[in-house]
């Protein structure tokens, strides 16, 4: 029941449904998720427009786009264009720290983090916890760099390793 009303509201979301929704909500079975219930009790409000999203938030969204979509995002509006240029022009630093007790997992995690965005950083700082053998850590890091960044030569990665075993 609740689900059906959500669907209706999605199509006609500008029409006020709250009264009907509340009645049906109280009679609906406990099987409906609480999220659906919360949505039912919505009353008059002004939906904020996308313009309220400031440049920093927009940047957070746009820097996740793959390159072709990113390029077409530059043509959407002046603000979008400015934010895209900002993303491209700033030297990007990515950093990550993992204290995972497994060397393998720790290296995976920091690399996942610093290379998580489609537009790669110029410079990455990856730190892992202490207590690993220096030789093992070094080998693993070199391998990971070779595997992951075969085509990305311009990225410099510094891996910081804490307190080693001899």
């Amino acid at each position: 029941m609740a689900e059906v009303i959500i669907r209706i509201r999605h199509h006609l979301h500008h029409i006020e449904f709250s009264q009907e929704a509340e009645t049906s909500c109280s009679s609906s079975s406990s099987s409906s998720s609480s999220l659906s219930k919360l949505r039912m009790t919505k009353t008059h409000r002004t939906t904020p427009r996308f313009e309220e999203i400031n440049a920093d938030l927009l940047q957070n969204i746009l820097e996740r786009l793959p390159v072709p979509s990113f390029a077409s995002a530059t043509c959407v509006s002046k603000l979008w264009n400015r934010v895209c240029n900002r993303i491209l022009s700033r030297p990007k630093l990515a950093s990550a720290l993992s204290l995972n007790p497994s060397l393998h997992m720790a290296v995976e995690e920091v690399f996942d983090k610093v290379l998580s965005k489609p537009i790669r950083p110029h410079f990455a700082l990856a730190s892992i916890g202490s207590g690993f053998s220096l030789i093992d850590a070094f080998r693993l890091v070199v391998w990971t760099i070779l595997l992951r960044m075969f085509f990305v030569f311009e990225v410099e990665v510094i891996v910081v390793l804490g307190g080693f075993k001899a």
């Binding site: 996308f50 938030l57 957070n60 969204i61 746009l62 996740r64 995002a73 043509c75 509006s77």
Partner: peptide
């Protein structure tokens, strides 16, 4: 933010504007 990014991925400029209710300035 990830959700918004994937919603506008591979979409035309017109679609993106309509999606967010933006106008070209």
């Amino acid at each position: 933010c990830r959700a918004v990014a994937s919603a506008i991925q591979n979409k035309s400029v017109e679609y993106v504007r309509k999606f967010f209710g933006l106008e070209s300035d």
